[in-house]
Lab assay of single mutants.
Amino acid sequence: MTYKAILNGKTLKGETTTEAVDAATAEKVFKQYANDNGVDGEWTYDDATKTFTVTE
């Protein structure tokens, strides 16, 4: 399944996708990606669109 992350960081804005077996696995991948890029904020998840959003 393909999951998407939308990054609304102070220094990084954009989107990325990952293939994962479930939302929990995708969330770990996206949170690591955000952390590696200095983005730390509030996370939300929309199951209907399989989209995570982080906003700083």
Results as ranks from 00 to 15, higher is better:
34 A>Y: 06
7 L>H: 03
55 T>D: 07
55 T>N: 10
27 E>H: 12
45 Y>P: 00
43 W>Y: 02
7 L>W: 15
1 M>L: 13
44 T>Q: 07
33 Y>F: 11
34 A>N: 01
5 A>N: 03
46 D>G: 00
2 T>G: 05
28 K>Y: 08
39 V>E: 03
29 V>M: 10
26 A>G: 02
2 T>Y: 09
21 V>E: 12
9 G>F: 14
56 E>A: 07
21 V>A: 13
8 N>Q: 08
21 V>G: 10
19 E>S: 11
35 N>F: 15
5 A>S: 04
15 E>Q: 11
11 T>H: 13
26 A>S: 00
40 D>K: 13
11 T>R: 10
44 T>K: 08
45 Y>N: 00
40 D>N: 13
50 K>V: 03
36 D>L: 12
5 A>T: 04
13 K>L: 07
45 Y>L: 02
28 K>S: 10
48 A>I: 11
1 M>W: 13
21 V>Y: 12
31 K>L: 08
40 D>C: 12
1 M>S: 13
8 N>T: 06
54 V>K: 00
54 V>N: 03
47 D>I: 09
3 Y>C: 04
47 D>H: 11
43 W>I: 04
8 N>K: 11
4 K>W: 09
11 T>I: 11
30 F>M: 02
13 K>H: 11
12 L>Y: 15
14 G>C: 15
45 Y>M: 00
22 D>V: 02
54 V>S: 02
21 V>F: 12
38 G>E: 06
22 D>W: 02
39 V>Q: 03
36 D>A: 13
46 D>K: 03
6 I>P: 03
44 T>I: 09
18 T>H: 07
28 K>W: 09
42 E>Y: 13
53 T>K: 05
41 G>C: 04
25 T>S: 14
27 E>S: 07
25 T>F: 07
39 V>R: 02
32 Q>E: 09
26 A>V: 01
37 N>Y: 13
6 I>R: 05
25 T>E: 13
48 A>E: 13
55 T>V: 09
54 V>A: 03
32 Q>A: 10
15 E>C: 14
39 V>T: 03
15 E>I: 11
29 V>C: 08
38 G>F: 07
52 F>M: 01
54 V>E: 01
37 N>I: 14
10 K>I: 14
32 Q>L: 09
15 E>P: 03
41 G>Q: 02
4 K>G: 04
21 V>I: 13
45 Y>H: 01
48 A>W: 07
52 F>Y: 05
17 T>A: 08
19 E>Q: 14
51 T>G: 00
49 T>F: 05
16 T>W: 15
12 L>P: 04
50 K>G: 05
20 A>C: 09
7 L>I: 15
31 K>M: 09
43 W>M: 03
56 E>W: 12
38 G>S: 06
1 M>Q: 14
29 V>W: 14
44 T>Y: 11
3 Y>G: 02
38 G>Q: 07
42 E>T: 13
7 L>Y: 13
17 T>Q: 11
31 K>H: 09
50 K>W: 05
9 G>L: 14
19 E>Y: 15
50 K>T: 02
51 T>Q: 04
37 N>T: 06
1 M>Y: 15
31 K>W: 07
29 V>K: 08
20 A>H: 02
56 E>Q: 10
8 N>P: 04
8 N>M: 11
13 K>I: 09
24 A>Q: 12
34 A>R: 00
49 T>E: 06
55 T>W: 10
2 T>V: 13
23 A>Y: 13
